[in-house]
């Protein structure tokens, strides 16, 4: 069996999909809502990597500003205005 260049995207698909599961678990488990927002942002980074590898450049350009820019910003403002820790 030969090892070729094409294994790289498939390895990255496996890596980032498994890490996105871990990030979702951490988001559900985290009590501090500010850190939970940052973890959601990290999950967005992995998902945009997956969109790039699934050959959807339009969705990458949409998803990076939405999930890394706009939604965390509005959530930071909301957490600042309401309460930071979940009980």
């Amino acid at each position: 069996m030969q090892i070729d260049v094409l294994i790289i995207p498939y390895v990255v698909i496996i890596y980032s999909s498994l890490l996105s599961v871990f990030m979702t678990y951490l988001v559900v488990r985290e009590r501090d809502l500010l850190i939970a927002t940052i973890l959601t942002l990290t999950q967005g980074v992995f998902y945009s990597l997956l969109y790039l590898l699934l050959m959807a450049p339009d969705l990458v350009l949409t998803y990076i500003p939405v999930s890394v820019g706009v939604t965390p910003l509005l959530l930071f403002l909301l957490v600042k205005k309401t309460e930071r820790f979940e009980r």
Binding site: P57, D58, T62, G69, V70
Partner: peptide, 17 residues
Amino acid sequence: TPGGGFQGGTIAVVAAT
């Protein structure tokens, strides 16, 4: 090229924020 109205709009919103 990859892109469109919504993509460009959200990228510009990042500058405004």
